[in-house]
Amino acid sequence: MIKPIRVAVNGYGVIGKRVADAVKAQKDMTLIGVADVATDWRTRVLQTKGVPLFAATPKAFDELRAAGRRTAGQLDDLLGEVDVIIDCTPKHVAADNVPLYRARSLKFILQGGEKHAVTGHSFVAEASFETAVGRQATRVVSCNTTATVRTLSALKRAGLLQRARGTLLRRATDPWESHKGGIMNTLVPEPEIPSHQGPDAQTVDPDLDVVTMAVKVPETIAHLHYWSVQMTRPVDKEEVLDAFRSSSRILLMKDAYGLDALNAVKELMADRGRSRGDLYEVALWADMLTVQGDELFYAYMVDNQAIVVPETIDAIRALDGRETSGRRSIAATDLAMGIDNDLFAGNRV
Rank of each mutant, 00 (worst) to 15 (best):
R249Q: 15
V240D: 07
Y257D: 11
H225I: 08
D294P: 07
A222E: 00
E281Q: 07
L284E: 01
E267F: 00
Q197K: 03
D207L: 09
K216R: 10
H223I: 06
D271R: 10
G277M: 04
F244G: 02
I250D: 00
H225N: 08
P234S: 12
V217C: 06
H225A: 08
E238W: 04
D200A: 09
S228D: 14
D255V: 07
A256V: 11
W227R: 03
D278I: 00
T220V: 11
G293Q: 06
D303V: 09
S246N: 01
A286S: 09
E295K: 09
Y298F: 11
L208D: 02
G277L: 05
Y300S: 04
A283Q: 01
V308I: 06
A270G: 05
G198V: 02
Y298H: 05
M213H: 08
D287T: 09
D255Y: 09
D209A: 06
D303N: 10
V291S: 07
V210C: 05
Y280S: 06
V265P: 00
V308W: 04
V265H: 01
L259T: 03
V215M: 06
N304D: 12
Y226M: 12
Q230M: 13
D294L: 03
A256E: 15
A222F: 03
M253Q: 15
D287W: 11
D278Q: 11
L241I: 12
E295T: 15
A270F: 13
G273S: 07
M301P: 03
Y257W: 12
I250W: 03
L279W: 02
N263W: 15
W227K: 04
V282R: 01
T203Q: 06
R233D: 06
V204W: 05
H223W: 05
M301S: 10
